[in-house]
Design a binder for these strands. Sequence first.
DNA 1: GAGTGGTCTAGACCACTGT
DNA 2: CAGTGGTCTAGACCACTCC
Lengths: 264, 264
Amino acid sequence: MATKAERLASDIGRRIESGELAPGERLPTMAEMTRVTGVAGTTVQTAYGILRDRGLIHTVHGQGSFVREPKVMFTRNASTRYVEEKGRAGTDDPERLGVMIAEMDSPRVKRSDVEVDSMYFDVDADQVMAEKFGIEVGDRLLERIYQTRVSAKADHMNVVTSYVPLVYIEGNPELLDADNEPWPGGTMHQLRTVGIEIAKIVDDVIARPPTMQEADALDLESGVAVLQITKTSIDTEGRVVEISTAVYPGDRTQLSYTTELPRW
Amino acid sequence: MATKAERLASDIGRRIESGELAPGERLPTMAEMTRVTGVAGTTVQTAYGILRDRGLIHTVHGQGSFVREPKVMFTRNASTRYVEEKGRAGTDDPERLGVMIAEMDSPRVKRSDVEVDSMYFDVDADQVMAEKFGIEVGDRLLERIYQTRVSAKADHMNVVTSYVPLVYIEGNPELLDADNEPWPGGTMHQLRTVGIEIAKIVDDVIARPPTMQEADALDLESGVAVLQITKTSIDTEGRVVEISTAVYPGDRTQLSYTTELPRW
DNA sequence: GAGTGGTCTAGACCACTGT
DNA sequence: CAGTGGTCTAGACCACTCC
């Protein structure tokens, strides 16, 4: 038999799914629930915690618990976005370049609606990075950290960390300047200024629990995982030229990948 | 300031990451920890729960808590697996066909090392399914549920549910027989027997909390999410001919997708 | 200040594992 | 059986929100 907390959570969960408790509506307070059900306060706490983990409710300290609005799933379609970005990057037409950088979410969003904090660092490659890039430990890397936010939509918050070996890009000093952010026209366009063309991109996807900073920045309920995408860009000569990781809220993000198959 | 439970969890976490507590080693019992730290038993419980959620420890009722062995990541490379499966499916060479079915994990595993439970059902398309397939509500679908397990490796447990509109496959009665499981040579090969060639596959990936059955079947610690892949197969005439979903343990699975970019 | 959720306590009691 | 983790309780106390 399930625990008392689980049974209470299931009861409330059913009332939510049946629509008896509508999205946005406030749940009975925990004190009220304690009085009505007769179980102890900490047990009610546990039950509400289970509902939070399942994404059914949302709690604000001092206000109460509320039935969550249905999640708006954001779809990130990598296959098409990478091809489109490369298409844009192949031109010098400023209008097309102004559209968006690739690490951001919605290709249709205008540059001016996006706030970006960026930081550039000059770091040494550790064992792991050196192996991935096929360079020596201690070789220098440009580390770029972008924190992007679509105005008034905290939902689409996003943190990207990117690494590029310095040796590939020092031919264009503009690329080392954090004020010049984010690399106008996107990474692929800027790499083009130093003669690099990306031929292939590999996305590795994992789900993991968020760090405390991530939970805070992405406004994650307890129990929600993040999707972490490690993107490896390989140029026409087979070199790994950029590795970036992006983190998305696991409960609101769908990743879509298309594989075209050769004909028989 | 963090809570007492969080601080205690961080302390122990550091001792694990520093190697002071080695993988497989038993942690101090909760009673012991209560005595040593002076915090209440329930608080120690909470701290140990946090460590479980972070994947650092593993608890067995009646035995104790143990430092987890480093996770063995299993990588599922969709882009290449789909292309390979189609290659195999294009032949009638029995050896090549015997290798593996596509929904399973490791293409190198032999058929005989895999246990499969399969169930076939004849179901009516609901609103959602009808829309995805572009058919009418109430049209019949073949539902196949595979539960696969690589012998002696509970880790690679896997549950797949697949839907195919009956009208596409009733030309070959063998395909409707659950004893004929799993579709020898894989779904693509069997679809070939009724004249269908898959041209494109779309994978949609989300992370979500496991159902109780999934947590049980996949042996998931509390707080671990599952990765759910919805695979949509589209044939050379643009019809959606199969939709399947597969669920993987989020803490042990890495999905890899490759995008080839057209040259400038 | 009144009402809300969050943390912590001390202890009871139960359930599981090993000997 | 002793020793382990798991659940639950009643209540104290704190922190946050709104009026």
